[in-house]
Design a protein around this nucleic acid. Structure first.
Lengths: 300, 300
DNA sequence: TAAGTAATGCTCAGATAGAGCAAAAGGATG
DNA sequence: CATCCTTTTGCTCTATCTGAGCATTACTTA
């Protein structure tokens, strides 16, 4: 026992450029997350091992890093005769999008298009996903309830439920991976870019976790440059949460939590009144219990 | 590679009896969490493997189970020449406290005595821990800030920071494990019951996670019998959170969230007005986005 | 019958969240 | 130079939520 087991470290590396959140992938068909075996002998800690793998595969230096989840179902990765694979997944946040040539950034919402509600409920959801989910859940009270909460049918849409939503789509056979894993021959559904193995599930896990963490830890600032305007900050949060926020209330929040401090200087104008540049007040972390950005549908 | 690696599944199994939260341990000195190797060949999923290990070692049938964290630092478990150990830890909740003979329940607050603030700030904290932490953090701005947030010196006490607190105590050499791991010969500090390996750290992780989860998922009910009074429910929540709650406001909360429904019947009286028996409304999970018990110091 | 005890019901002030109006400070346009 | 356009910034108003306490009810016990 233990002989035919492989432990890999997989990373969901996230950056936000402009209004678009992106995930770093390694080229291939389908694209995959950066991933490499744990070096049992050399990696002092799992986190250091993860940093090593990320460095080797992408050339990116990541700052913030956090363990996400360990995936180890036996049938997860179907390579007959191969070892059983245990994947320890991490979430990493980076500021810039410089990469090694084999690595490329994919829009997060190209992977999980139903998660982006910034322009209202996306068409893929109303026109494609929901009708099919509704068929799939028909006659089954339990499925109906799950679809309802996860996709906010009678309840508000909850951004952090990204994983539940992906899992429902997988179960209902509405993502490419489900069809592939079942060796089905149905046409590939138009529900976002397929990924290798269960990497899209890992991405969904990461998205939900990150959205949740935003509310009680100032993780957004790991994605921001040193100085930024409040609008840029808001656009970044919106990009992650997949929702539009009320501008004045967003400022009030950031203000009340003392998350930032003004620099007195102003950003080069982009058409309207010039915005003041702010920087993150690192000391909040040592001052307030749960500094973060309360999100709109934080409760029902 | 992979040859000298052992993957174990460790469980923090929690029950609440009366006002006391308890953790199931296997006998030994020091006591340890139920733990066993993942069967690479037989365990279909990690969770099923965990259930198998729990059943084998404790005879307990657990209902709710949730993956906590994967621990894998190379120097974690010091057995020279032995394999490197990767531990996937789970949190499990059970209703009753029946066990196999080799297993025994330990009060959670015997392990982490500084976490119980139901009777006010515990003496161990004010008289022992805080003075020593203050010495340890003296002259070091960074340490001071960490102590301050984690232990609520100038900020409110935050129940979910249990792991941070344990880690600070470990770093400051204020728990038995720290002294043991450093092969130090200082006297054993009076800061709760020592556990094997890093199991007390795992317990702290579990406590923090459970406290957090209470606020947005109705997990308490996994610890309650089918029918209970609102006072019993409150006492259970208080036991986990380690804080007293305002009775009337607690009822209002439970009420507003539609978490329970009355049965019309009443509990055998215990001295005052007989309390109505309630049961969990399972359907809330399908109705509201984040049903749970908002906790008092939920924000600063 | 009165006293004790816990459950339950209700009120009230302060804080928060959601939404919108209005003024301010630039650039672009004529 | 005045006007319009755009975005930032400041402020207000209301509904809701939270924390805290008082009052009443329904039992048991003395």
């Amino acid at each position: 026992m233990g002989a035919d087991l492989l432990v890999t470290l997989d990373a969901v590396i996230v950056a936000v450029t402009g209004v678009q959140p992106r995930v770093l992938t390694v080229a291939g068909t389908p694209p995959a997350l950066p991933s490499g075996p744990l070096s049992v002998a050399d990696d002092e800690t799992l986190e250091l091992g993860m940093r090593r793998v990320i460095g080797e595969q992408t050339g990116v230096e990541v700052g913030y890093i956090e363990q996400l989840y360990t995936f180890g179902d036996r049938e997860r990765i179907r390579s007959p005769g191969g070892p059983r694979v245990l994947s320890i997944a991490y979430l990493a946040l980076v500021r810039e999008a410089s990469t090694a040539p084999e690595a490329r950034w994919i829009d997060w919402y190209a992977l999980l298009p139903w998660e982006d509600h910034r322009e209202g409920v996306p068409a893929i959801l109303t026109d494609h996903v929901l009708p099919r989910l509704s068929d799939w859940a028909d006659q089954d009270v339990d499925r109906r309830a799950r679809v309802s909460v996860s996709f906010g049918v009678d309840t508000p849409w909850d951004p952090i439920r990204a994983l539940e939503r992906y899992e429902l789509l997988y179960e209902a056979g509405l993502v490419a991976e489900a069809i592939r894993d079942r060796r089905d021959d149905r046409p590939v559904p138009p529900t976002g870019v397929e990924m290798a193995s269960d990497h899209r599930r890992i991405c969904a896990t990461a998205l939900g976790r990150l959205r949740g963490k935003l509310t009680y830890r100032p993780v957004v600032f790991e994605l921001m440059p040193d100085e930024f305007t409040l609008s840029e900050l808001q656009r970044t949060v919106e990009a992650l949460v997949g929702l539009r926020l009320h501008k004045q209330n967003f400022r009030r929040l950031v203000d009340r939590e003392h998350l930032v401090e003004g620099t007195g200087r102003h950003a080069p104008s982009t058409g309207g009144r010039p915005a003041e540049l702010y920087r993150f007040r690192r000391s909040v972390v040592g001052e307030r219990p749960r500094p973060g950005m309360r999100l709109p549908p934080f409760r029902g």
